[in-house]
Design a protein around this nucleic acid. Structure first.
Lengths: 189, 189
DNA sequence: ATTTATGCAAATCCTTTGCAAATCT
DNA sequence: AGATTTGCAAAGGATTTGCATAAAT
């Protein structure tokens, strides 16, 4: 993902089995990510289990969010919805509210980069970590079993019950380290 | 440091003050941290190299910050300054401005936990990562050479120039995983 | 004597909330 | 019908900034 602007993609069909499309850099194969429910179905299940309702807005948001694999923030999602959903766009508060629900439902993961919340797919997507370019803001995903091993070993030693981890390696991506312009200050990782 | 129960933006009032419960756990020896300059000296050097001035406020802040090893945020620093520096306290904007300079100078590291910026010593302090308890907010420091090795290997593979990394393992600390109360939602790590 | 810093108040930015109207089940 | 959601406008909270004054070189 390159934070400020994000690319657009086509609409989401409804395949028998949901397929993840890629668009950002990724350094591991997805293999056959096998999830029995589509994100929308999974979300509806979640909503029902909590006595919440399946509204058009919630549906529109999940569809847009899972129409392509990318990192995004509330603003970019809002803009995508305006572009793609036209007059049925969703309001900003609803976007925020739904994003929170999607995280609760385990469909999205949230992280903070440069002082704003950034989301990425979680449901049906393999666990991974990130390289973050401080200059162009690009995110590169990578996966390392060793990280998880270290994590678990350290946790065990401290009798700590792991619920997750986040590793962000920050610096300059190949392109940016070639250019002369100075990098921005290492800020909020 | 035990961070306060995180007030989510806007929804809750922030507590007037939380108690900083002694310093944090550390799982590696400091060894003989060998730095030729004291933090204040180092900072003065930095300021001079940039044509900035050594003011009483900046001095007061560095002294307070390095008077003990702990994690802190702008508010707690501000309060410490009020307590210890009495009427010569420093204003909030100056605290923020100086904190930024200290990060630039390499004296402090900044991270975001529960939606607020948290700082810790960097100068003369060994590189390390954290275990973060989602329930009590405790931070446990640990050090692992392997993390750095993995980091560098991954970076090499991507021709990525590493400037730093951040690994936060979140979950429940030993104490909290014993207790019955439910953990808070995995939020902003 | 200059120039940079400080403090105050006000502004920003992202995010959340109160409430009446609209929408689900 | 009855309950939950939505959208709007406004509020919140951490952090930043404009500007006149104070302090450092």
């Amino acid at each position: 993902m390159v934070l400020p602007a994000s690319p657009r993609r086509g609409r989401l069909r409804r395949p028998d089995r949901w397929v993840i499309r890629m668009s950002i850099s990724r350094d591991f194969s997805l293999g056959t990510v096998d999830v029995s429910l589509t994100p929308i179905e999974r979300f509806e299940e979640f909503l029902q289990s909590r006595g919440k309702r399946v509204t058009q807005q919630r549906r529109a948001i999940v569809e847009r969010v899972f129409s392509h694999h990318d990192h995004f923030d509330a603003d970019s999602l809002l803009e995508q919805l305006r572009k793609h959903t036209g007059r049925h766009a969703v309001s900003r508060p609803t976007v925020y509210r739904t994003l929170t629900e999607l995280v609760d439902a385990g469909l999205l993961r949230k992280m903070v980069l440069n002082d704003r919340a950034v989301y990425e797919h979680d449901y049906g997507y393999p666990q991974h970590d990130h390289l973050h370019c401080q200059k162009c803001n690009r995110l590169i995903e990578f996966s390392s079993d060793e990280v998880k091993e270290i994590r678990d070993a350290v946790a065990r030693k401290h009798q700590f019950r792991v619920l997750g981890h986040r590793l962000i390696i920050s610096g300059l991506c190949a392109d940016c380290s070639r250019s002369k312009r100075p990098a921005r200050r290492l800020d909020l990782i």
